[in-house]
Design a binder for these strands. Structure first.
Length: 536
RNA sequence: GUCCUCGUAGCUCAGCUGGAUAGAGCAUACGCCUUCUAAGCGUACGGUCAAGUGUUCGAAUCACUUCGGGGACACCA
């Protein structure tokens, strides 16, 4: 419908010989008396034409003729308001019923290759709340973009090398020795999570003290393997299924990290100082240089990360999205610098920063830390409130809102989570359809004529646009909010209108209408990883 | 100290490439179940959009300043 109005305005402008290069904005007014659609084109043209906007609006309107439009009004500063015939809404019912679970799908992505890397938590512990947020965002975005015709790869980067894995190994070893009654102190930066103790216990139960002479390497490998398996299992339960897991160790093998440093050197972005090799990233985007090779000859974390992104670039994506916590924000400039220093286009790499989730316990902020093991795990969250509630909860806010999370409150109030409100609408529809179902699509709808139904259908009609907008702006929460609003309109409609009536034709058409709602709710929820129940 | 980010109703948040009277939910008060699920619907109450200045036909939205919350500033990752 917007297209039709857009075209009408364009035609009118042509007739008037007015040139307007930007896209004409057509919006849907909040107040009903301001029409179904509205344009501010006259206001935009005031400066250019040096004329009163009301006069411009009048001229434009005088040159519009379109039989899909009922009437056009011009309001105060110069808005042009369109009141349109509702036939397109009835036509859209047919579209929804034909497209079913594909309603809302589009091909704006044109098969572009997109890589979304998210969570990527080190395998030194299990996933916690912050990962739940990043996970919900990344996976929902992937689903939305796929629905819009992008070729999306969901990727997890495993930091399975370096210092923190040494610490992991040491931590497990220490716990194992403890169980064997031997003394072995936990490293200063050791991990204190329950899962670490559990791994040590497993070793002890299986081998008693026979493994005391095992090398550190054994503990490292075993720990990484077990924790990663746990992470993957938790993610799967959270309805995230990655396409690719890339391991830091594998990247190091593939590229020989020294070669990466050599390329940086050849491009003139390194220098030596204090016995270390530095990355001259301040010459690009960063405000400080950083060390690549420490004076003891070992590499910093930066090198494998640079190699990893180099590898991603080699895989030919048109866009790569990294989702990181705001605590990594200083890292972005470094990373982008490295991309550019290696001769790649840094604009293809987009870094999304999510505000960290603060955990509240008994009214006090708890510092979450994997090292100390103080946090709420993803698994606990899922077990306590369910996947649907958790996914919805984290999908409904934009990434830059700071969230306080109170697990007790979340548990006690889980019924207040809007996901139940939406599910309830879905279940109500399913329940009616269990009574009577009807499939045949009529050529013409003859019984639909009340405002609530049109409002409902209008919302359904907007769904594909909302999906596109969510994909382009990379904002999954638009979907979460949309489907809530749809449920809201449905509940109001349901309260006022009987769906099963004495009139057969009317009942049939009502059934078709609520089926549209059902498909739309289902498709929308599916995009944010929520599966609505048919019964509540 | 430098940089980033956030500040909208009592609470949790939408709205942000500038548009018309700033929206929901929760909480509070009051209504609505003989009929398809009351996990629902409706009404009321609630706002100097942190403060200020600027940009312009028009600012919650953009720019600058100030104040407040959070975060980052390692030869840790």
């Amino acid at each position: 419908m917007k297209d039709t109005i857009n075209k009408s305005i364009c035609d009118s402008l042509n007739k008037l010989n007015i040139k307007y290069d930007e896209e004409i904005e057509i919006s849907t007014p909040k107040q009903k008396e301001n029409g179904d659609y509205s344009s501010n084109i006259a206001l935009k043209l005031t400066k250019k034409l040096q004329k009163n906007p009301m006069d411009i609006a009048n001229e434009i309107v005088a040159n519009i003729s379109n039989d899909e439009i009922n009437k056009i009004e011009i309001k105060k500063p110069g808005f042009i308001n369109f009141f349109v015939k509702k036939d397109y809404l009835l036509e859209n019912i047919k579209t929804v019923l034909q497209e079913k679970e594909n309603y809302g799908r589009s091909n704006i992505g044109n098969n572009q290759k997109i890589n979304i890397e998210f969570v990527s938590a080190n395998p030194t512990g299990i996933l916690h709340l912050g990962n739940a947020r990043g996970g919900a965002y990344g996976d929902s975005l992937a689903r939305i973009m796929r629905f819009c015709g992008y070729d999306v790869t969901e990727e997890y980067y495993i930091n399975d090398a370096g210092n923190q894995i040494n610490n992991l190994g040491e931590s497990i070893k220490a716990r194992y020795y403890e169980l064997c009654g031997k003394d072995y102190s936990l490293p200063e930066n050791g991990y204190h999570g329950k899962e670490i103790i559990a791994i040590a216990k497993d070793i002890y139960e299986e081998h008693k003290d026979a493994y005391l002479d095992k090398e550190l390497e054994y503990y490292k490998e075993l720990g990484t393997k077990k924790l990663l398996a746990k992470i993957v299992a938790d993610l799967k339960e959270y309805r995230i299924n990655y396409d690719v897991f890339t391991s830091e160790a594998a990247i190091s093998k593939k590229y020989n990290l020294l070669n990466i440093i050599d390329i940086l050197k050849q491009n003139g972005y390194t220098y030596e100082a204090d016995g270390a090799i530095w990355f001259k990233c301040s010459a690009i985007f960063d405000d400080k240089d950083h060390v690549l090779v420490k004076n003891d000859g070992t590499l910093t974390y930066l090198v494998p990360d640079i190699a990893y992104h180099y590898d991603k670039y080699n895989r030919g994506y048109t866009k790569m999205i990294d989702i990181l916590g705001t605590d990594h924000h200083g890292y972005v400039a470094r990373l982008k610098s490295s991309v550019k220093a290696l001769g790649n286009d840094e604009n293809k790499l987009e870094v999304k920063l999510l505000q960290l989730v603060r955990l509240i316990n008994n009214g006090e902020v708890v510092k979450m830390s994997k090292r100390t093991g103080k946090s709420v795990t993803l698994k606990e969250l899922i077990d306590d409130v369910g996947v649907n509630a958790a996914r919805y909860y984290f999908s409904r806010y934009s990434l830059d809102t700071q969230m306080d999370f109170d697990l007790n409150l979340a548990k006690s109030k889980s019924n207040e989570n809007p996901v139940y409100y939406i599910s309830y609408a879905y279940a109500r529809i399913c329940s009616i359809l269990k009574e009577i179902d009807y499939d045949a699509i009529p050529d013409k709808f003859t019984t639909i004529n009340n405002e609530e139904t049109y409002e409902l259908l209008q919302k359904v009609y907007e769904f594909p646009e909302v999906v596109k907008s969510a994909a382009l702006k990379e904002l999954p929460h638009l979907i979460a909010n949309y489907v809530y609003e749809l449920a809201n309109i449905f509940h109001a409609y349901y309260a006022k209108n009987r769906i099963l009536t004495d009139d057969k034709k009317q009942t049939q058409e009502n059934i078709l209408v609520i089926k549209c709602i059902r498909y739309t709710i289902y498709n929308a929820l599916n995009l944010i990883g929520v599966i609505p129940p048919e019964k509540m």
